[in-house]
Write a protein that binds this DNA or RNA. Structure first.
Lengths: 226, 226
DNA sequence: TTTAATAATTTGATATAACAAATCAAATAA
DNA sequence: TTATTTGATTTGTTATATCAAATTATTAAA
C-alpha cells in the first residue's frame, strides 16, 4: 500500500524566524535607514538568545540590507544616490527580464491574483491606506516575478526591493497618488491579461524609474537638510 | 598639528575569515558539488569554535552557495541545468552592463592589468597549468567589472561566479584550449584597449555563453551517468 | 544471510558565560 | 564653564555546554 502523505516540514530555525521577522519589519518601514540595531535589543524584543540573532543579522549584513560600521555596529543600510541609481539600473534589467519570461508562463490564477492586487492597491491608495497599498503593490510585482519560475532571479529581485524597503514607506504617500503611476499600473495589468510581455516589461520599467525618481528627490532633500 | 595617519583597520572577524577561506576553497574546486560540510569538520580544520563557522555557513547558504537539505545538512550547492541557464541569462545582463559601464571608466592601470591577466591566462593554458589559468581568467573579468564602480552590481556578479565556481575546475581544462574561446578573449582585450564598450560587451557575452555550454554539456553527462 | 530493533555516536540548534573593545557617565582639573 | 580623565556600562566576539534530531553501528531475531 502506498499512502500519499504530505511531507512534514520541520519548524523553521530561530535564525530563519528572526531573519524573516526583521525583513518584514524593514519592509514595513519600522526602522528608518541609519537606525542602529543592537543584538541584545533584537534578542530581548523577540525573546531569543543572542546566537540566532547574531546569525540573522550576519545574513542581512551580507545581503547589504544592514551595514556594518567600522565599530562593528549594525545599522539599517542607508542608500546613497549613486547606489540608488545603480540599483535602479539593475532592477530594470532583472525585472523586465522576469516580466517578459513570466508573461508566457503565468497561470490564469496568477493573472487573476496580479490584477486583483493591482485593483486593491489603487483602492487602498485612494483610501489613503498606504501600508495596505504598499503591500498590494508588492504582491502585484512579485506575483509576476515569481511566475517567471526562476528562483535565483527572484531572490535577487527580492533583495533589491528589501534594500530600498526602508525608504518606500517614506516616499509612497505622494507617489501612490500620482496619476501617471496609477495609469501605468493599470496598463501593466492589461498587458498581463493580454500576455504581452514586451508591453509589460515597458510598463514595469516605467514604474521602476518613476519610483526611483521619487526616492532620489527625497534623498536629495534629506542631504540638503543635513 | 594635523598628522595624516592611515586609518587602522580592525582585524577581520573569525566569521569573515572562515567565510573567505571557504569561498576560496570553493573557487579552487576543493569541494565537489554535493559534498557535505559539517560544522565540526570545518571548525577543527580551521582551528576555531563552532560559532564563527556556523555563522559563515549560514551566510554562504543564504547566498545560495551552500544548500541546506531538509535534515539541516549543508552541502556544496549542486546546480541543475535549469538554474544554470537562469544564471547564464542573468550573468549576460549584469556582466555586459558592467563591461559597457567600465569601458569608459577604466584607468590605464586597469587596462594594463586586464590585458596582462589575459596574456597570463592564455600562457598558463598553453602550459596546461589550469589552476593558474582559472585564476587569471577571474582576474581579467573582475578587473573589468570592478572598474564599473558599482559595488552592488559587483557583489551580485561575484556571487554568481561563486555558485558555478565549484564546477569551473572540472570544465576548464578542455575549455581553455578551445581556439574559439582564446580568440574571443583576445578580442575582448583589444576592445578594452580601444575602450569600445559595445564590442567588449559582445565578447563578454560570447565568453559567458561558451563556458555555460561547456558546463551544461558536463552536467548532462553527469546526469546520464547517474 | 537478511531484516528489525536497539544502543552509541555524530551533528545541528540554542543558550549562556566570559572577555575585550567601544561607548557613555561622572568626577576632577583647567 | 569647558576639557580631560577615570570608572561604569553597553555591545560585539568567541568559546563552550547542553539538548534533540539524525545517523551509524551493533546486536538480536527472522
Amino acid at each position: 500500500m502506498t499512502i500519499h502523505l504530505e511531507s512534514i516540514e520541520r519548524a523553521d530555525t530561530l535564525t530563519e524566524q528572526v531573519c524573516q521577522n526583521l525583513r518584514e519589519a524593514l519592509i514595513g518601514g519600522m526602522f528608518p535607514p541609519g537606525e542602529r540595531l543592537t543584538m541584545r535589543f533584537v534578542a530581548t524584543a523577540l525573546g531569543v538568545s543572542l546566537t540566532p540573532v547574531r546569525e540573522a543579522l550576519g545574513i542581512l549584513a551580507a545581503e547589504g540590507v544592514l551595514e556594518m560600521l567600522p565599530n562593528r555596529t549594525l545599522i539599517v543600510a542607508p542608500i546613497s544616490i549613486d547606489v540608488l541609481r545603480e540599483i535602479t539600473e539593475i532592477r530594470v534589467m532583472l525585472e523586465t527580464f522576469a516580466s517578459k519570461t513570466a508573461s508566457k508562463l503565468l497561470t490564469e490564477n496568477d493573472i487573476a491574483a496580479a490584477v486583483s492586487a493591482n485593483d486593491e492597491m489603487i483602492r487602498a491608495t485612494e483610501a489613503k491606506d498606504f501600508k495596505r497599498a504598499i503591500r498590494h503593490n508588492r504582491d502585484f510585482h512579485f506575483t509576476i516575478y515569481r511566475g517567471a519560475g526562476m528562483p535565483t532571479l527572484f531572490k535577487m529581485i527580492e533583495n533589491l526591493w528589501l534594500r530600498t524597503g526602508a525608504y518606500v514607506n517614506l516616499t509612497h504617500p505622494g507617489f501612490g497618488l500620482m496619476p501617471k503611476a496609477v495609469e501605468n499600473h493599470n496598463r501593466a495589468a492589461a498587458a498581463i491579461i493580454a500576455r504581452d510581455g514586451r508591453a509589460l516589461a515597458r510598463f514595469i520599467e516605467i514604474d521602476i524609474r518613476l519610483s526611483a525618481e521619487r526616492l532620489e528627490a527625497m534623498l536629495k532633500a534629506k542631504v540638503e537638510a543635513a
